[in-house]
Write a protein that binds this DNA or RNA. Structure first.
Lengths: 319, 319
DNA sequence: TCCAATTATACTCTACCTGAATATAAGGCG
DNA sequence: CGCCTTATATTCAGGTAGAGTATAATTGGA
């Protein structure tokens, strides 16, 4: 501690209390009922860049980098989390790297310029997170046995029990319900169990359990973004950031389902949307749905002005 | 943007993409039904210190600083927000300052060493946030007229309407309900209206509207912590971090009320606690309450292990 | 001693919210 | 025309939350 105090006083000079600050964005869009994240290059890398002095704020720095790297101007953004794991700093660096991550919601059509960015489905990175068609086979056939194996490999009974319990809660084993919000917890558990590629860099041991990995800790950041978004759609009307100006109620439902990774009871979904007056009819209808034409709706922007007081939430309340 | 790109390439050398990183803690305890925050010195300053290379992580750096400055080892902590306002950097500094803030919950008794720290009531800094005895007079008599004045001073009708609406939502004017979670929003509104001291540093204009201010942006950080905690007690059993090992249900209720700044319907509170099985009887009773002796309870730590799946939430759902 | 004040604990009633199922309407298409 | 598909409306039961009321067990004082 005295050491730490020492570094404080030397703030003007040394590298000890100086850091490189990186801004990283999880940019989300949904199209064709598939939730996507924006990556740059062919390298499974999230848009990011160092905070610089000419940036007026963290947010404006982030917007600048993302627009430059991907051609997407950002609308809605919110801060996610700040990471500073030691292993983020390459061994050759004498400086720590801080990574401030943001969640951004947009639509693919908003791109203004072609660029070397591309959209990837969430579920390419997290195949165990899509429960829209029921529990994915890979969960029961692959993850579950590997996690049980991991639990059993613990040294003492208490740890074994604890690991089994954590896995059961996170993945909904046994008769427990699956909770879509726990994306980050699930990823961290798989990391701890060394079942994802990132956890075993430099190792030669058993192969990872599935899902593309990403550069450095970007998959963890993506998991953080998914968790946050899945929670948030339940109590704030943020889905509409991902919708076109006019949409049918089923399109809206499918978008929510894509994000949540689970299906919703249709009549109840409509009831909630209507009773919270989140939308209003445009007067038009769409016949492109195969059956009876559906009314088109637009988001009632007034709900944003009505304050967080009133409901303004979406279903998915609990499994 | 080209400019920004330029700085990126020069990352190895210049000061442009280098920053000083500060860790700041909002340490909360409740005693005598008063929610308190830990400050150092006599200067209304939150415990804080620069992140240094020898810190294993952000959290451990924070724990080190707080323990050194206040003698309080920390238990529960969670990250709040990362700030990087330009005006945080003193004009003389060529480097940006990043401030990563945390919320910590503890009990005053946990102090291990005497120190130059002290506990201050939240409501000394935010007198408009305590609605336990009804809406405070200062809100109706002082804040409301000043906010209306501010709204009216806008240039155009749209802005005037917008300002009145925002004030009404944030403070629950008219027939709107008061929402205790909006602490940060209220502070930001007062800041924007230049009704708090921090907003008018260097100005000579009308006096601020009340409440002690803090060093630099520490009052904003405290507001962030209060907002987060007031939201969180509704869906996670974090209050128990602030309780002694054994307590009566009324003590528990008073603690929640102290945090929320509003009163709770007693029978409903007990019902919720019991039906979520958050506590278990110790078998003892307490007669120090003046009337009929009250059963003593302890927190059922098992609920933490039962996963965020089950309820585990507290009342205060909506006004 | 016994009453009054104080707090603890238990019970009830109603409105609303939620999950789930069912019924009817309006298009396309062979 | 009749069938398939999707849209839209309605109903029912269980649970939750707000609010009010009743009874129990102490202390302190008349």
């Amino acid at each position: 501690m005295d050491q730490a105090k020492g570094t404080r006083k030397s703030r003007a000079g040394g590298k000890a209390d100086t850091a490189k600050v990186d801004l990283t964005a999880v940019v989300v869009a949904v199209s064709n009922n598939e939730p996507c994240v924006l990556t740059i290059g062919q390298t499974d890398t999230l848009p990011s860049g160092p905070l610089a002095l000419e940036h007026r704020s963290l947010q404006s720095g982030l917007r600048t980098w993302v627009e430059e790297q991907t051609g997407h101007p950002l609308g809605y953004i919110e801060q996610l989390y700040t990471f500073a794991d030691r292993d983020r700093a390459g061994a050759e660096l004498e400086r720590r790297v801080i990574s401030i991550s943001y969640l951004a919601l947009t639509r693919k059509e908003h791109a203004t310029a072609p660029s070397r960015s591309s959209w990837q489905s969430w579920y390419d990175y997290f195949p165990w997170e899509d429960h829209r068609a029921g529990t994915p086979p890979m969960v029961s056939d692959l993850l579950r046995p590997r996690l049980i194996e991991w639990a059993e490999s613990a040294d003492d009974d208490a740890t074994r029990l604890e690991r089994r319990r954590r896995a059961a809660i996170a993945f909904g084993f046994g008769d427990r319900p699956w909770n879509e919000d726990l994306t980050l917890k699930r990823y961290e558990l798989l990391y701890e169990a060394a079942l994802v590629e990132e956890a075993m860099r430099g190792s030669t041991l058993p192969p990872p359990v599935g899902g593309k990995s990403m550069v450095s800790d970007h998959r963890r950041i993506l998991a953080t973004g998914i968790s946050r978004l899945r929670s948030k759609i339940k109590y704030r009307p943020v889905v509409f950031e991902l919708m076109p100006p006019a949409f049918t109620l089923l399109q809206l439902q499918r978008t929510v389902e894509a994000l949540a990774g689970r299906l919703i009871h249709k009549p109840n979904f409509r009831r909630l949307i209507e009773q919270h007056q989140l939308v209003e009819e445009t007067g038009e209808t769409s016949t492109e749905t195969g059956g009876r034409p559906a009314k088109l709706y637009r988001f009632r922007h007034a709900v944003l002005e009505e304050g967080e007081v009133a409901g303004a939430k979406l279903p998915l309340s609990r499994a």
